[in-house]
Amino acid sequence: MRRAEPLLALAAAAAMVVAALAAPWLKFVLTIALAKGMAALGIMLLLRAGQVSFGHALYVSFGAYTVAFLAPTLRDSLLLLPVAAAMATALGLVVGLFVSRYRQIFFGMLNLALSMVFFSLLEKLYHITHGTDGIRVALPTMLGQALERTSFEWAIFGVALALALLFGWFARAYLDAPMGQALAGIKTRETRLEFMGVPARHVLLSAYVLSALMAGCGGAIIAMTTRHVTPLLAYWTASGELVFIAILGGAGGVIGPFLGAVTYELVRVYAAAILAEAWQAILGTVLLLVILFAPGGLWGMLAALFRRRRAA
């Protein structure tokens, strides 16, 4: 299954392009799913170390608001994206230096607390952030070209897809490399790392900064796709959503978070259309079933199916 990952990822990417061609409204849903998948991939890295962040909406919203604030001056999406990524990474480094000292519930709650501080800043500083009204993002250009709306949506969908593949490839190599393996060592035997001369805190910090980068890019893409940012992007439910997606998709492989994100967004769209009142109950039930019967998430289920077919 591991060896099939790159091929599967490319096939899934192709399938998404076909789906977006067949049903134009899906393009929007899939772009958002890819953006959330990136953020969930960062969550998954931290899960490898046994740490759950309930505050990564901080980086998503930070990336999104960076785009919203700078869109009038920078204008081009391929300038806005790296600037937002750099800003989120820098914030991740500053916050990470602090939170990487903590583990378990303290790690989770500190992340939550910091994201809620940012949420209330976004909400209260009306003259800067326009409070709950949020900020509209003008249609950015792409490589200096002013595109009309549909073309721009295609372009940003392509950017999201390329970035998702890039992050997926990088995370896969990272998890196999000494740094990623030491990250998993934090979960089982952190003291041993220290007695081998490895600073466990820095191992966790590097994964944390990486996760902030991924979430920041996700936020930038969300801002350029929805073209409207509000403080809700930083609310704790948005952070919970990312953890939900990571667990739904499964932490066993880098495709998991994206699989989780696409499933989540599609269930949300369909369930909201069919059962407007009960879609959250449906999502809750899906998560409950996954936790109880498929602890490896959707990716774990697929991998098991694949193994069984090979064995047969």
Binding site: F170, A173, Y174, A177, P178, M179, G180, Q181, A182, L193, M196, G197, V198, V203, S206
Partner: peptide, 11 residues
């Protein structure tokens, strides 16, 4: 790896 250098993110 701890002895030789843990900080390689890709190999």
């Amino acid at each position: 790896a701890a002895r030789e250098g843990i900080w390689s993110p890709l190999a």
